[in-house]
């Protein structure tokens, strides 16, 4: 194993442990008596604007031939490639970029950017698209009427429409899915609510690349906040001023 890879694994590990410790601390301070195991249920989950969950993606660490974050998301949330690329859902995708001026090539994952002022939420006629207090943008599958206006409005093509019946064996408690409704990255809300990290961030750490850093943007001491405060980073389509929770370094 190369030195670089070891360093990165260590980084991912620190990142993960640090996050867990803070999540636990947050539980203790916010709601004494509420334990981590209760975190998963919606009612008892301490979803407040004291947190804002986000991702920082270091494009230099992401490899073009690696698809681990995508496979991990697919396995975690039950969406699949069925061989119809035009209609299959993709909650997260790898995009290869080539700088038109210099020829430099990079690769990076794109998922729902969990915008602070999400256009998808603004346009949704029923309110099925919503943003939680902690910044996670979700679709309530019971209210979504499948009008797809949110897909028209999202600047990142982050959303997919479920074009077919979801096969019984793919039904997944982590993320209810249904034909005729719209879905997108949930930032693994079911994991976050129990104090865990999103599947993509873990998978990326396990490959040794460690390109995806998950954390609380509201906590000035979190690794993600420190990184953002120290190094240059950017949001996709910064000109739209949506202030997404997902940020990129070294594009």
């Amino acid at each position: 194993m190369s030195q670089r890879k070891q360093d990165m694994e260590k980084g991912a590990e620190i990142n993960r442990r640090g996050f867990l410790a803070r999540a636990a601390a947050a539980t203790l301070t916010l709601a004494p008596g509420v334990t981590l195991s209760l975190y998963g249920s919606e009612a008892s989950a301490q979803v407040t604007s004291a947190n804002r969950w986000g991702l920082l993606i270091d494009v230099n660490k992401c490899r073009s031939d690696c698809n681990s974050c995508v496979s991990a998301c697919s396995a975690e949330n039950g969406w699949k490639d069925t061989g119809n690329p035009e209609t299959d859902p993709q909650w997260i995708r790898k995009v290869d970029l080539k700088d038109l001026a210099t020829g430099r090539e990079v690769s990076l994952p794109v998922m729902c950017q969990h915008c602070e002022t999400p256009p998808c939420v603004d346009v949704c006629p029923t309110g099925a698209s919503f943003k939680r207090a902690d910044g996670i943008v979700l679709v309530d599958k019971h209210i979504c009427i499948g009008c797809r206006y949110c897909m028209m409005a999202c600047p990142y093509k982050a959303r997919s429409f479920v074009h077919e019946e979801v096969p019984e064996e793919d039904k997944n408690v982590n993320a209810p899915r249904g034909k005729g409704t719209v879905e997108s990255c949930t930032l693994c809300v079911h994991r976050v609510d129990r104090g865990d990290m999103p599947a993509c961030a873990i998978a990326c750490g396990e490959t040794g690349n460690g390109a995806i850093l998950f954390g609380d943007l509201m906590d000035p001491d979190s690794e993600i906040s420190i990184q953002l405060a120290t190094y240059q980073s950017s949001a996709l389509r910064d000109d739209l001023r949506l202030n997404p929770g997902v940020r990129y370094q070294n594009i």
């Binding site: 939420v121 346009v123 949704c124 006629p125 029923t126 979504c144 009427i145 499948g146 206006y149 005729g180």
Partner: peptide, 25 residues
């Protein structure tokens, strides 16, 4: 053409007043 035309009643009862779509209704 909605993905869930059966939920039409929802679109009439839960309104997001920020949505131009809802205003159009």
């Amino acid at each position: 053409d909605l993905g869930r035309p059966d939920r039409l009643i929802i679109s009439m009862t839960t309104y997001n007043f920020k949505s131009i779509f809802a205003w159009n209704m």
